[in-house]
Write a protein that binds this DNA or RNA. Structure first.
Lengths: 344, 344
DNA sequence: GACCGTTGTGACAACGTTGTCCAAACGCTG
DNA sequence: CAGCGTTTGGACAACGTTGTCACAACGGTC
């Protein structure tokens, strides 16, 4: 064989292209293309030769080139969330992936780690890869930087939090109402001094849930002592200190509302070291909440449903639907298990 | 303006290309390329004009075309696992993503759902997108179909389970040893009749852990009654029935070993409905295991470390390292919490 | 004023694929 | 055997980008 495409000494093995296949099968380039794409107009015998060459060379079509030529969709969507390892987001991802798969799309995933710069970088990287759509848990304060992408036809859906500076479909949990219901429940159990531990109020969900707490307290005519509030990243030490403060003194709180699953777990760990029982409701359900010594009453979200809804909205947009941007609020469900039903 | 690239009636808004930018800025195509890539040899004034045009048109470079032209790496890696929503895999993903990010790569994620056909499809789709590397939790019995990709320079690393029919770097937990240690621990607590509930033994980890159980029993000189074994997907009903069987009669088992976190949780739920306490050790740690009424003794794996190692191996390969395929076994850690220390 | 190097710029080909178009070879009819 | 359609095949351009090369304009030297 005089002329081989691959040079023996080359470090990076060259991938066979259609040209190589064509040469190996002794046919024209376009014929290979036809065979690969199942187009008609190729005799069975020729197709067999081409298939044999493909197998022999281990050819696989370069989708990048195909997409470039066709100028069409890449069949990729991107998902950007805060932390893939958080069970809430893990479930959400799974649902998004499922829907993407059912529409024949592949999924890019990225964690922003609550860092706006990182989110922006990831988003734009995904856009440079020409994803057809993006599902984002927004962290940045403003998403105006996405406007050109949106204008260029990239579908965008916001999930878990709204996006500022950009009008897009949005899927949220009923944060305020869910939190208000939970606090209302505690109030009906006779509690008046209720502590609230939540995430940084810069985060939309944290602010909304806090607002729900305040609303329920106000509706019941109970004042809120600012000393009962502790807002910040769910770190064990900070939470332990906050609890120490809230649970001591004559005006100690008798019940606690936790703003997210991380906080709830941290609070439970902290409480486990203290004697005495405090009523508690957590926002967001978590595995084994029902199996703990005092089963934990929670405001359950439905991350799977949220992910599914967001993905369906995204694919609807990608199909070219022009309707006005929607804002879906997925209801929460108060799951009574015991921890919220403790007396004062 | 006589000649505009975009037609007003067109449904799909055309993305601006470098050509459009060049026209808008009144410069040549290559000059735009130079500006975009920060190449020298462009006067400041020209660069400013180009930047203005880029901002105005909302231009973003098409990485697909760039990659095609350069023939170089896509800076994408693919991760295929069983179920993104499983906490073990969620943590593993996070670690992989972190390493990928630190190497400037984007991450495709896909769940095989333990379906070989789906795994194969995902894998090959990723390859068609020309990922630089693949990390796979293998489900298929044989991965020979990946051989051409490997030959073409796609790096492949197997994680959690070995790959058959392909020699690649592999990162595993010390399944057999971990399980044997755990069972040995139960034996030292005086147990002789120990039940084992695990996943389908077709799955490598399930088979290995079962082997560890058998080994520990054999070393202690205890026989194994096949009625003590229940292998299959972790479904509540099946597990409940199996437990009923194991825990009744005069020869009821006095301790249980669970082969994975899903099974452990299902067993705990099932046991919660029965009176009486059974010693139990689970393979794989899970959140709140230490907070349950009887804290659960587990064989802890380190999914983050496994993910990190696999990703580091992958990027080492991608950097062109030619060393022989490695097989890393990450040690497990027996975490004593109480459930394994119950008396017979 | 002929020659030089330097600086800024653009024309052109190429990456791997597909869509358009045309040509060769065939069997059929008149 | 001319004329026709049908089947099969290939040449060529284009997608958006970058690498190579060459050209134009400049100031400076002999």
């Amino acid at each position: 064989m005089p002329d081989r495409a691959e040079r023996p000494g080359s470090e990076i093995p060259a991938r066979p292209t259609m040209k190589d296949v064509a040469a190996a099968a002794g046919v024209g380039l376009k014929t290979v293309s036809r065979v690969v794409n199942g187009e008609p107009g190729v005799s069975e015998e020729t197709a067999d030769r081409v298939h044999a060459a493909i197998r022999e060379l281990g050819f696989r079509r370069n989708d990048g080139a195909r997409l470039l030529r066709q100028g069409s969709r890449t069949s990729c969507v991107g998902l950007i969330l805060e932390d893939l390892a958080d069970p809430f987001y893990a479930q959400l991802s799974r649902a998004v992936e499922e829907v993407a798969r059912s529409h024949g799309s592949l999924l890019f995933t990225g964690s922003s780690a609550e860092d706006p710069a990182r989110e922006r970088e990831l988003t734009l990287d995904f856009c440079a890869r020409r994803v057809d759509g993006l599902i984002v848990v927004p962290t940045a304060a403003d998403h105006g930087f996405l406007a050109p992408e949106l204008a260029a036809g990239t579908a965008v859906v916001s999930i878990d939090r709204p996006m500022n500076g950009l009008t897009v479909d949005t899927v949220l949990a009923a944060n305020r109402r869910g939190a208000a219901e939970a606090v209302g429940h505690l109030i009906r159990q006779g509690h008046r001094r209720i502590g609230y531990l939540g995430d940084d109020p810069e985060i939309f969900t944290a602010a909304e849930r806090l607002a729900g707490y305040r609303q329920a307290m106000a509706e019941a005519g109970h004042g809120v002592d600012e000393a009962w509030l502790a807002m910040g990243r769910p770190e064990p030490v900070g939470i332990h200190l906050a609890l120490d403060r809230m649970l001591s003194g004559p005006d100690a709180v008798t019940a606690l509302m936790c703003g997210n699953n991380r906080t709830t777990v941290a609070v439970l760990r902290s409480l486990a070291t203290c004697p005495g029982r405090t009523a508690l409701v957590g926002f967001d359900d978590f595995e084994l909440a029902d199996m703990l010594p005092v089963p934990v009453t929670v405001v359950a979200q439905d991350p799977m449903l949220m992910g599914r809804m967001a993905a369906e909205l995204l694919f609807r947009r990608m199909r070219g639907e022009r309707a006005q941007a929607q804002r879906l609020e997925i209801p929460t469900r108060l799951v009574l298990r015991g921890s919220g039903e403790l007396p004062c």
